[in-house]
Structure formats: structure tokens, C-alpha cells
Amino acid sequence: MDFNVSTFFLEIINFLILLWVLQRLFYKPLLEVIAKRKRFIDQTVTEADTTRQQAEALRDQYQNRQQQWEQEKQVALVSFNQQIEAERTLQLNKLVADLEDEKQKLQVSVSRQQEEFKMLAEKQALKNGARFAALLLQQTASDELEAKLTSLLIDKLSSLPDECSSSLNLLKTKKSIPIKISSAYPLPNELREQLELKLNALIDGSINFQYFQAEELIAGVRIDIGSWELNANLQHELSAFAELADEIV
């Protein structure tokens, strides 16, 4: 229980020395290592947090991008469908127009064919009619019919148009004008005289009348004055009938 001053002071010094030694050898390096590890852990945690935030940001970014892609895909799909619909409508309209054109062409072609067929039928009918009329007239032709036709011609000569009369007057020459008169049957003298009188009245100058018989005229006469030809016969009428059929074609 005794108190020793030397021990007292030596213990104080001892403790202070121990404190200094432990501070140098123990606490300081140990606390530094702990602090260093704590810094490392904090840094690692911070880096992990940063990495996590970056990963989350990237994830959000990718999700946003994916949504954008989805929206763009939808928009592109709608646009594509619209384009397809527009193209389909265009092609359909074009097809309808082409079909309409083809239809019109076909209608025109059909109508033309029908027209041609009709014209051919008319032509054939006219030819048949002409042939039938020719056969019929050949069987009914006679000198009396020819006399009537000649009389009709004589009557017509007195009422020729002015242009024809003036043209005939231009034939005036010093030479005699040859006029060829062809008939299917021999013309009676009475009709010859009437014809010559009428022609002399129309043409001033000497006229050389020449008479021929041409059975192809069936009935009637044909007068050739230079380049002029006056027809009053059935063959000419029938040929005019056939020419009409050709004109139709």
C-alpha cells in the first residue's frame, strides 16, 4: 500500500513512451491501412455505382432507342402500307383504264368488223342485184326497149346542161367530127335521123356518123364523140350499179 515517487514518475514516463511507440508502430500504420482500404472500398463502391448508373443509363437509352425503333417501324409500316395501297390503287386504275381502252378498241374493232361485214354484205347484195338485174334485163331486153331508151336520150340531148353544151361546141374543127353510135339492136332509120338532127343542132360543123352494133349494151345506145361518151343503155346502168358497190367498199 506504500506509494513510491520514483515508481510513480517512472510509470508516467513508461506509459508516455509506450504511447509514443504504439502511436508510431501500431496505430498510425494500422489506421492508415484501414483508411486506405476504406478509401479503396469507397472508390470501388463509387465506381460500381457509376458503372451501375452508366449501365442503367445505357439500358434506358437502349430501351428508348428500342421504343423509337418500334415507333419508326410502325410509321414505316404504315407508310409502306399506304404506298402499297396507293400503288395498288394506281395499278388498279391503270388496269381498269387499260381494260377500258382494250374494251373500246375491241368495240371499235368489232364495230369495224361489223361495218366491213355489212359493207361486204351490201357489196355482195349489190353485185348479186346487179347480176340478177343483168340477167333479168338480158331476158327482157328488146328493140322496143332500145327505141324507148334512144328516144329518152334524144329528149335528154335537147335539155343538156349549159356546161355540156359549151363543151360540145368546143369540138368545132375544120375536119368532120366522127361520132360513133353503138346500139345493141340495129337502130331504125327514123331514130337515126332524130339523133343526127339533135347532134347537128348541138355541134356546129360537119359530122361523120358511124353506126355499130354492140350486143354487150343489152339495150340502148352509146354515142362516142371524141373523148365524150353518152350512154343510154342498160349495160352502162348496170356497170354504174356495180361501181356504186365498189365505191361502198
Partner: peptide
């Protein structure tokens, strides 16, 4: 006057150090 306690303390100090 160095007591036994002081010497023991030195030993303890040495061990701890």
C-alpha cells in the same frame, strides 16, 4: 528506486511493442 512494478511494466511494454 526502480521497483518490480516498473521492471514488469518494461517487460509489458517490450511485449506490446
Amino acid at each position: 528506486m526502480i521497483s518490480g512494478s516498473v521492471i514488469t511494466t518494461w517487460g509489458i511494454m517490450l511485449v506490446i511493442a
